[in-house]
Design a protein around this nucleic acid. Structure first.
Lengths: 231, 231
DNA sequence: TGTCGTCAACTAACATGTTAGTATTCAGGT
DNA sequence: ACCTGAATACTAACATGTTAGTTGACGACA
């Protein structure tokens, strides 16, 4: 059991520890390792063909990001969701994205506007083709572009780190008919406000958009009780 | 040379790695290890009387937080400031604190209001006594309280992680006559808006306050060129 | 004298051995 | 049957040994 669910680290670049980290992270975010799964260092070492050092470092990082809980001298398991943490992540993400979108609306370049427009066009095409996986990826890229266009290179990674739990919880959402099309419309509203250099309008459009996600996420606790921390 | 500038890990709690991390972090933030200082794992192990494992883990964390730069297979040094990074940290911090203060203004409890008021009173007393170190600490506590009172336990630590570079750069500021008294006034404006449950006023008061810090920090690049990354 | 290539010394990165704390199991007693 | 506690098996945490990449110094050559 527990066959090779980890992506081979040969395909990745960087230090061993870095590659192990990416492999584990991918497995956790994709729910290949569902919440509660116990991670055995020994098994991971064997599967990936590395020693315990890089695995330990990777797990330490995952622990810092809240993706795993390590119980001292005992075990380390994939962390369960908690609706409180999800709300917290949503709050933090909203704070960052609202600040970003306002800034971008104020001082975007034409080139940046073009890139965003192109991305949005792509979103429309993908939804039309009912390629939801592709849309999902392009959606994330849209938000990442906005963070990048603040001119602060680290902002994007902080935002994505802070919303890791959201990204993971989102995997539980069943593709809801018509939701992607709505999301595109909301993105469009954000982009229109940016085009008009109207930071306030951009913020409220973005706030509306982000509010939808947390609304979708709320009922999850009832639907997947086993994935949530019992209080 | 390079005498015992590290606080003894005996005084701290938690795992060894945790204690080493705290000790190093303290040394870097207090500028006992100024930017550019080369960290030798061997020397640190000797000073603290531990092996390389916990030291490596600690350095990995510091690296993730941007406090040290690791040059693969070669060396690890305390990271230099860059004004771009400082501006980025300021942007991120502002995003988080504005969101927090608005939320607190909207849904604070009376107990929380009391705690903030007590803190502010203490600030006044410390400034009156010209106890600037004490004021500095209470100032940070004020901001930490606001993050805590959002009801999101992790928000406070995210905010402080994000603004680590600000905290460090602030150590370079010479105590400017009258600045603490002004800061107290600005805090007071924030608190007044919170008392009146006026999120918009609270945000603009906070924005004003945080803007002051970055203004003070800007000239630092010229005053301490050796601490800044050369571009 | 200046430049290039080789070599030695040093460091982070990785592998592996050891310790100590935790949880489970199972025997013995009630 | 159920509670209790000692012994055991397992894990993370820590220590130490090994590898490999980088840097800087030194010497041969132009």
């Amino acid at each position: 059991m527990n066959a090779v669910t980890l992506t081979d680290i040969e395909d990745l670049s960087g230090s061993l520890a870095q590659r192990v980290y990416q492999s584990l992270r991918e497995a956790i975010l994709s729910m290949a390792y569902p919440p509660g799964t116990i991670l055995r260092k020994g098994a991971i070492c064997e599967q990936l063909g590395v020693s315990r050092s890089p695995v330990s470092e990777a797990i330490a990082r995952l622990s810092a990001e809240g993706l795993v809980d390590v119980i001292p001298q005992s075990a380390t398991r994939v962390s369960c969701f908690s609706m409180d943490e999800i709300r917290e992540a949503s709050f933090l993400r909203e704070a960052l994205e609202l600040a970003a979108v306002a800034r971008v609306a104020e001082q975007r370049s034409d080139e940046q506007l073009t890139q965003l427009t192109r991305n949005l066009r792509l979103q429309e095409l993908l939804v039309e083709d009912r390629d939801f996986a592709g849309f999902y990826k392009t959606d994330e890229e849209f938000h990442a572009l906005l963070m990048e266009f603040t001119g602060f290179p680290g902002a994007s990674s902080v935002a994505s780190t802070v919303s890791l739990q959201l990204k993971r919880a989102r995997m539980l959402l069943l593709p809801e008919e018509g939701r992607p099309a709505e999301a595109v419309k909301e993105h469009k509203a954000v982009l229109d406000a940016i085009r008009l250099s109207d930071p306030v309008a951009a913020q409220s459009a973005m706030k509306l958009h982000l509010g939808r996600l947390i609304t979708q996420l709320e009922p999850l606790e009832g639907q997947h009780p086993t994935f949530f921390r019992t209080r």
